[in-house]
Simulated scan of single mutants.
Amino acid sequence: MAKRAFVTGSSHGLGAHLASRLAGDGWKVTGLGRRPEAETPGTAGVDYIQADLSRPETVERLPALLGETPDLIVHNAVSYPPRGAQELSLADLDSVFRVNALAPYRLTLDLLAAKPDTRFTSVVVVNSESMYHADRDSGVYAASKAALRVLTTALADVCRSRNAGVATLLLGPLADPDKVEQLRRVAAGRGVDEAEITRIFLRKSNPDLVIEELIDFESCYRSVQYIADLGRAANGMVCRLDGGSAGSLI
């Protein structure tokens, strides 16, 4: 019988890749995202739920929609503050923190509580090294990711008595399609190699990096596989795939 996986933020980007690869490897996958299903890749083997994690009712009804607690839960959904906003309303702040930190925490607690003690569940929380580099433009997003990291630590304590394991996959700058295409256009406009433009971009935007290329989605998937395969040993683990951008002392 195929194992079951649940991936949030699966409508595009990294989440879509993770859901697709899991399905290709034989998992029965349920994905969740805010985009209409018609705007998703529509991967075979992935059942899609359109829902907004910033809404409390979404988190409350998801355990019933999923049925049995999945064998693997990947929290990948992410929300960013409105671009260009000089001041964020409390509603904006609440939405970002709900999606990025509160929903993964609450949903994991509910799913673990509904799980039979005889079945093991692996939880992978995708987080960002952005929490270490807050400024006036990124402070809210960074704070939500810092909150997620603290709440994940609390979940690790819960998992010890629930036959489960939760680990953080800490990511640096990803090779998402929009970013790659933007760098490609810049390289073409300047008549230089795309790899060189990428190196320049990373050095300027992430001076602590010890890598010179964006992190590809497939490396992220292999990291999820690695964490899931570790089972209980991964509980509380931080798997860093961030090129050292979190700093040498962390």
Rank of each mutant, 00 (worst) to 15 (best):
D117L: 13
T43D: 14
L32A: 10
P116E: 01
K28A: 15
G189L: 11
L66E: 06
A142I: 06
D71E: 08
R34T: 14
T58K: 07
S144M: 03
A156G: 13
W27H: 03
P41H: 01
V140Q: 10
S79K: 11
I197Q: 06
N127T: 11
D47V: 15
A164L: 12
D242A: 06
E37Y: 02
A167L: 05
G236V: 05
E181N: 15
V210Y: 08
V238E: 06
L107T: 07
L62T: 02
S248D: 13
Q182E: 14
Y221F: 04
E213Q: 10
F201H: 13
L202N: 04
S130M: 15
P173M: 10
V7R: 02
A188T: 14
A51G: 12
D52V: 13
F97C: 05
R21A: 02
M1N: 11
Y226S: 03
L230T: 12
E194Y: 05
I73V: 11
G24S: 02
R160V: 11
V124M: 01
V224C: 00
T168I: 15
P207G: 12
G172D: 03
A147R: 07
L93H: 07
A2P: 13
D137M: 11
L65D: 14
R35L: 11
R83Q: 13
S128H: 01
D193W: 04
P207W: 09
R106W: 15
V59M: 06
T152N: 06
R34I: 13
C239W: 11
V166K: 08
M237P: 07
A142V: 06
L107M: 00
L90A: 10
L214K: 01
R106E: 13
G191R: 04
T198F: 01
G9R: 02
E39I: 06
W27K: 03
V78T: 14
T58V: 10
A91D: 11
E39R: 02
A195C: 04
V150K: 10
H75I: 12
L183D: 07
A147E: 04
A23K: 01
P41T: 00
K204Y: 07
L209W: 11
G26A: 06
V78H: 05
G247I: 07
S122W: 05
Q182R: 15
F120Y: 12
A23W: 01
L148V: 12
N206L: 12
H75E: 09
R55H: 14
G13Y: 07
V166P: 06
K3N: 08
E181C: 14
A101E: 08
